[in-house]
């Protein structure tokens, strides 16, 4: 593994954390100040009554918006833009949705199992019309587990960068370079966890989250394929082009 000084790790943590905050779509304080409410029962019902394809389209749009912020985050991670374009695209194709799932825990309210969506807090029942209850349950469970770790923004930022810089993605041209960046990010994450006096188990718990994230993404791909098989024209004509590029 690379030799890195403490000062270098501090600097890396600072830069990644700043990039994360600059590109995180919603600041926690903003959401608190907005005093967002939960959806009322009749609002929940109106989401549930939406045609399946309309709800899918809405969620594809929200995911795409969130991913655009993740792309900006990636661009500001040290060394990411020095990778060849093939590898930048491979990493974003495989990792951008995973980072969206990580970021979800910032807008998750564990008291009532709701998540910020479409300007209010929504429980799993809001997403019923999608017709993929198992995926929604998995996403909420993940957000719940992730938020129970009570990571700081700096820790979340470094974990997001670590996931984005996964060196084991297929089709990377310069695996070694990505591996170096990922190792440095992991060292910075370890350094910050130690500095924050987190117990040793946290890093292991985060490692387990990596496989949970992959499983969520493959579930999403399966659900999308099943949806596309029934509504190919809706996907072709109404889904955001970036979403189709990433998951098509």
């Amino acid at each position: 593994s690379p030799t890195v000084s403490m000062a270098e790790l501090d600097h890396l943590a600072h830069v990644v954390s700043k990039s994360h905050l600059e590109t995180c779509q919603y600041l926690r304080e903003e959401l608190q100040q907005m005093n967002c409410q939960n959806f009322l029962q009749d609002e929940v019902e109106s989401y549930q009554k939406k045609p399946r394809e309309v709800m899918w389209q809405l969620c594809a749009l929200k995911i795409t918006e969130a991913i655009q912020y993740v792309v900006e985050f990636a661009k500001r991670i040290n060394g990411f833009m020095d990778l060849c374009q093939n590898d930048q695209i491979v990493l974003l194709k495989a990792g951008s949705l995973e980072v969206v799932f990580i970021r979800m825990c910032r807008v998750f309210d564990s008291h009532n199992n709701t998540i910020y969506f479409d300007r209010k807090f929504a429980g799993p029942d809001v997403f019923k019309a999608l017709g993929c209850d198992d995926l929604i349950t998995s996403v909420f469970d993940f957000a719940k587990n992730m938020s129970s770790l009570h990571l700081t923004e700096e820790e979340l930022a470094l974990f997001s960068a670590f996931v984005l810089l996964s060196a084991d993605r297929s089709w990377l041209q310069d695996k070694l370079q990505v591996e170096k960046l990922q190792q440095k990010t992991q060292l910075a994450l370890q350094h910050v966890l130690q500095k924050n006096q987190r117990e040793d188990g946290v890093l292991n718990k985060l490692r387990c989250k990596v496989s949970a994230l992959r499983s969520l993404c493959s579930q999403h791909t399966e659900k999308l394929s099943a949806f596309r098989a029934i509504y190919p024209d809706i996907v072709r004509t109404h889904f955001p082009p970036l979403y189709k590029e990433l998951f098509g």
């Binding site: 792309v71 500001r76 194709k93 970036l242």
Partner: peptide, 16 residues
């Protein structure tokens, strides 16, 4: 490149 046109564009836009 054609396959990932939008991603290419997003990556090439200067960070704002």
């Amino acid at each position: 490149k054609e396959k990932h046109k939008i991603l290419h564009q997003l990556l090439q836009n200067s960070t704002s």
